[in-house]
Computed example of a mutant assay.
Amino acid sequence: MFPPPDLNLFNCGLLITDADRRVLYANSFVLNEYGHDADVISVEGLSALFTRSSLILFDSYLYPMLLQEGVCQELQVMVKTADEERVPVLISVKQDTTGTGHHYWALFDATNRSKLYDELIETREKLQDQAESLANLAKRDALTGLLNRRELSEQFAMLLSQANRADRALSVLLIDIDHFKTINDEYGHQRGDTVLREFGGLLQKSCRTGDVAARYGGEEFVVLLPDTGITDAAKRADRIHEKLSGIEVGGLRFSVSIGISEKKAPVATDAENMIKKADEALYLAKNAGRGCTRLADA
């Protein structure tokens, strides 16, 4: 995922480090301005870039501040160049909030600090946008752009908790692309990926505000429908079948099998049970000849 291509356009040093303080990425400004080789920085980490006194300051102040506040702003330290020159820099460091342990660093030449504040504010905002973009990417399936299975689990737990507390309905569509192995075998995996990607887009467009669409794994997809009973969920499934019957997706015509389960108000249930029932209904749809929908038993 690293490096995002636009980071080399910034007129300041940018670093990404991991929980072990290894440098995962240094932009071209760092490499060109301070004369370091990317491989050296990758092996030696922060000690290749910063003076010993700066490293001590990191241990005594910067990292404790990151643990407590999640961010350390405008700390002046010393960078050492490849020629062992000392350059004062102003750094701001932000801790990733998604549990990766990554830290995002911005470095500004502090020999003339009066010119740096506007750049600092602008870069801080861009770094924040970049961090949010990376966090969003971590929630998405790389091929389809839909939510991945991990994020689906979190969204499912949240929606189900809300439905259980408020005695509201919630339905699950478990969707499987029919004969997908044959598509891969006959047309190649690249065409198969195109089918997955375009079907994911079709699925996303069919969602209402509040619905959750995710790639469950392989050629299986899940759609969560809040405030929707199984009868209305079946109508939504019918519309998916209708859309597929009239178009080519990835240059091919194909069908899907859909299994549906529901959480009935006011009966409480859990996500695992709902997926299990939807999977049983999906199995019935496949046995019925595919290209159809089946509903889970109450």
Results as ranks from 00 to 15, higher is better:
R208P: 15
D227G: 11
P226F: 05
F58N: 06
H189R: 09
D185E: 13
A296S: 05
H36E: 04
K139P: 15
R86D: 11
E154G: 08
D178S: 11
H36D: 01
L143A: 06
Y187I: 13
N164Q: 12
K126H: 02
L116K: 11
D109N: 15
I56C: 14
V212W: 00
S53V: 09
V172W: 00
S255Q: 11
L152Q: 00
R124H: 01
S133M: 07
K263S: 13
K126E: 08
V172S: 05
K235N: 12
T51M: 09
P88C: 03
Y104V: 00
R168A: 12
L107Q: 10
G200C: 07
D96A: 05
N287Y: 04
L55I: 11
V223Y: 04
G101L: 02
Q95R: 04
K263C: 12
I240R: 10
L225N: 04
K139A: 02
R22V: 08
I275H: 00
E44A: 12
H103C: 04
F180Y: 04
E74S: 08
M1I: 10
V40W: 06
A285R: 06
V40P: 01
F2D: 15
R215Q: 01
E262Y: 02
Y117E: 13
S28M: 09
S255D: 12
T98K: 01
E248Q: 15
